[in-house]
Computed example of a mutant assay.
Amino acid sequence: MASPLSIQLYTLRDRIAADRDGTLARLAEIGYRSVEPYDPTADPAGFRKTADELGLVVPSTHAYALFSKDAGEVFEAVRTTGTDRAIIPGGIDHDEFTTLDGLQRVADTLNGFAAKAAEHDALIGYHNHWWEIEPRFEGRTALEVLAGLLAPEVFLEVDTYWAAVGGADVPALLRTLGDRVYALHVKDGPGVKDEPHTAVGKGTIDVPPILAAAPGAVRIVELDSCAGDVFEAVAESHAYLTELEGRA
């Protein structure tokens, strides 16, 4: 059975800052049964209690906090939220992705996090933007080269929108990365940098072939920014993807 459609809570960061529990309740009312936190260290026990009450599961969480907080504290929070998968969504100098030496340093950083994660029965993943896609090495994106340098347990969460903006043939990229891909960030918009995103299905991204190229990956809706009402956008995204993939 396919995992439930999820949503990255960064999409609703302003609403969560004002009323976390009310925001989670509204997402559950829309039909989401899965959420991906962006800061697991923010009251993880309270978050888990509310998520349990609403029937929300957590397939993974972003863990930018690993760059600034004790790893043990972060992984304890990750596990408390209900997952064993922590994802690095940034925090690495973009220039590191433009050279082979830089990519090796990135891999060393991520592999180091993975070793710390293993001490807490957790896993590390990496989430791309466009700057891991634009640099090419003999026709391969920096992300593909990086994947070959990572420890086998390090997984990828491919942001399909930024992969497209970076110039990738996204279905081909996903097929190349194969089983390394645990999750997809599914988003839509005008397909350029520095412009607001739209509900999935309302922008320029050809979503169906992207999803078909990674049928087993967790689908996670995200809007980095939204020109209209964000709850309308996440509801429209849920309706579109539910119909597209025949999800419950």
Rank of each mutant, 00 (worst) to 15 (best):
H62C: 02
E73V: 09
A2R: 15
A51T: 02
V158I: 15
Y32M: 09
N111Q: 07
E29N: 04
G228F: 08
A239F: 03
A214K: 00
V200Q: 06
A212M: 01
E144C: 04
G139D: 05
G90A: 14
D179N: 04
I7F: 15
V35Q: 12
G55S: 01
G246K: 12
Y64D: 13
E153F: 00
G125D: 11
E138H: 06
F97P: 01
V200G: 03
G201T: 11
P196I: 04
V35A: 14
G125W: 04
L24H: 03
T109A: 14
H197M: 14
G178P: 01
G139I: 11
L24W: 10
P44A: 13
P209Q: 13
H127Y: 10
K69G: 03
A168H: 13
G191T: 01
A45E: 14
A2C: 04
V181H: 13
F137I: 02
G228N: 13
T98K: 14
G166F: 03
L54E: 11
A86G: 06
L146A: 10
P190G: 09
W162E: 08
G167D: 05
E195T: 01
A86Q: 02
A118F: 08
A212G: 04
G189V: 09
S34M: 07
T141V: 07
A233E: 14
A28P: 01
A45L: 10
L100A: 13
G189A: 08
V221F: 14
G46L: 06
V192E: 13
V230W: 11
R219A: 07
H185Y: 07
R33K: 15
P171S: 08
V192A: 03
I87K: 01
E76D: 15
E243Y: 01
G102R: 10
G148Y: 09
R180D: 02
T23L: 14
A25Q: 14
D14S: 11
T176C: 00
K202T: 11
P215H: 08
L27D: 05
V78I: 14
L24Y: 09
R247K: 09
L184N: 04
I220Y: 01
T61F: 11
C226R: 06
L241E: 10
I220F: 00
S225H: 07
E245F: 02
D43L: 06
R180W: 09
D52C: 12
D101F: 00
Y126Q: 07
I88Y: 06
A168T: 04
A65S: 15
I220P: 00
D93G: 02
F75K: 09
A214C: 01
D19V: 01
L143H: 06
T198L: 13
T80F: 10
Y64V: 03
D95F: 01
G191D: 07
T204M: 15
N128C: 02
I16P: 05
T81Y: 07
V218E: 13
G246I: 11
D21K: 12
T204K: 15
F67Y: 13
P59H: 07
A42C: 03
P4Y: 11
A117D: 05
T98N: 11
G112T: 01
P171I: 13
A183D: 10
T41A: 10
L110C: 07
F231A: 06
L177M: 08
L100I: 10
E132G: 00
P44M: 08
R180K: 14
K116G: 00
V58M: 11
V106I: 07
T141H: 15
D14K: 14
A63M: 11
A164M: 15
V158N: 15
L143G: 06
P190N: 07
L143M: 12
A233G: 09
Y182C: 06
H238S: 05
H62T: 00
